[in-house]
Each structure stands twice: as C-alpha cells, then as structure tokens.
Amino acid sequence: MFGDMMNMMGKLKETQKKVEETKKRLDTVLIDESSHDNKLKITLTANRTIKSIEIDDELLQDKEQLEDYLILTLNKALEKATKVNEAELAAAAKEGLPNIPGMDMFK
C-alpha cells in the first residue's frame, strides 16, 4: 500500500514537471491571425502573450474601425491559442496521470 502511494506521488511529480515543461514550450509556439482582408495581423504565443500587431495604414484613419478589427481579430487569435494551450496541457497531464479510481475523466 505504502509503495503504491509513493509510486503515485512520484508519477504526480513527474506529471507536474511535464506540464511545466509544456507551458515553457508553449511560449515558443506562435499563433498567427489576420483580419478577413489582411489589414490587421496579430501574432501571439500559445500561452496568449501578444508578440506583434501589424496595422494597415488605412485602418489608422478610422479609430472605430480599427477598434472593431482589433476586437474581432484578437478574439479569434485568443480562441486559437486557448485551444492549442488546453490541448497540449491536457495531453501532458493525461500522459503522466496514475490510474486513480474515479479520475478516468482525464483519460
């Protein structure tokens, strides 16, 4: 019994380490998103840190239009990044989870 508990604790620590490594790696995964007409381009990491924003000069003439473009394009980029982030972290956690009764929702 005690050996099983120690083995489980070891696997949990190993899983935690894999999750942390995955988080660091996701800082290097870049997500690109553009407006439908390519007047606005956004790049962010899978950890949802904005890396760059490119704005066409035409959008700089209309504040309200630029704000709309930013909201729409940032939301699309954040949605993509969140999907990648959640999938990668779930895979890292699932890989190392010990077989605990009742915790099969992660499998």
Rank of each mutant, 00 (worst) to 15 (best):
T82I: 12
Q65W: 09
G3S: 15
N38W: 02
K83G: 12
L44M: 12
M105L: 14
K63N: 11
K17N: 13
L66D: 02
D57N: 11
V19F: 04
K23L: 04
L59E: 00
N85T: 08
T82V: 11
E88A: 03
K83L: 14
K41Y: 11
Y69F: 10
E88D: 06
M8V: 15
M103H: 06
I50C: 14
L26V: 05
K11I: 03
K13M: 13
M9E: 11
K63G: 11
E67V: 09
K24H: 07
L40E: 01
F106R: 00
K107W: 11
F106H: 01
P98T: 08
I53Q: 05
I31P: 00
K107D: 13
K94C: 13
I71A: 07
V84Y: 04
D56Y: 05
E20C: 03
D4H: 14
L97C: 08
D104S: 15
T82L: 12
T49N: 14
L72D: 07
T49I: 14
K18M: 09
I42V: 10
L74M: 09
G3I: 13
I71L: 10
I55M: 00
N47M: 08
R48W: 06
V84E: 03
L12I: 12
E67A: 05
G10E: 06
G102T: 11
L89K: 07
L40S: 03
T73I: 04
D37R: 12
D57G: 09
P98D: 03
I100A: 10
E33P: 02
I42R: 00
K94F: 14
N38R: 12
E33S: 10
E20H: 03
L72V: 11
I31S: 00
L66W: 03
L74E: 04
E88G: 02
K11E: 06
L78R: 11
E95V: 15
A81Q: 12
L70N: 03
